[in-house]
Amino acid sequence: MSAVAAVREHRQFLGRTSFIEMGARERARAILDAGSFRELLGPFDRLKSPWLPLQGIVAQSDDGVVLARGTLDGRPALVAAIESIYQGGSMGEVSGAKIAGALELALRDCEQGKPVLPVLLLETGGVRLQEANLGLAVIAEIHAAIVALRRHVPVIGVISGMVGCFGGMSLAAALCSRLIVTRQARLGMNGPEVIEQEAGIAELDASDRALVWSLIGGEQRYAVGLVDELLEDDAVAIAASVRTAFAQGLPRQERSAQVDLYLERLAAIDPQRPLDGPGLRALWHGAARS
């Protein structure tokens, strides 16, 4: 790299506003058109978890989900942003119901001919274990709402990091029409720690960060076509990419409906032979995306 280019890159770096360092509320605000942010069920509505205090855990006043209505290029939109710092972004009864309920209302509006553009900012370990079965139940409701809503408008998911998106919410991400990630993002069903614990350290050493990212990191997911956009940690770029994703309209076939493609791909995999991130990139290179 020339000295001039290096300086330019450094300036760009300094000029960038980190999305990852923002809280959920700021993230939602950063996605929506300037001045259009209107929060629903905010902190002063005090819809807290009824289950955490029973277990001696202090509850947050918004249960870790920020819902905001506003506009994207002037069109009505909904952003649901998960606060990863509170309880690891886990889905409890209230936080999950906020997302499911908002998507259900967006669906109602779509059915009445008033499209609402839905954006999910997914930073979550999945079910909140202290609310176990109610977390699982509401995640199923989120899945149901995404599948129903997706028939009207694209549902756009963003995973920026650093928590990533895991558990039942990784299915929610996979159901999104388009997924935007950064290099810091991870997307997987079982967290590395859980795999190490359940299948042994020989299966996966969760402390090996390079290995973990080579399997489920944003760059890898992008390279094999499991997500649609790979961006730097830049709030402006992410907000622009969300708008582009909506401008592209509904995908010809949702990724979670590409049954023949993925069954064919799996049939070509020999589970007896080792496979790593680069190996899969070679197999699935130029992943077909309609």
Binding site: G42, P43, F44, I85
Partner: peptide, 18 residues
């Protein structure tokens, strides 16, 4: 007016003032 700051994360707190 009312104001909300902070998050209930490790070593932190939220304040709701109204």
């Amino acid at each position: 007016r009312r104001v909300h700051v902070g998050v209930v994360g490790s070593g932190d707190l939220e304040v709701l003032l109204e």
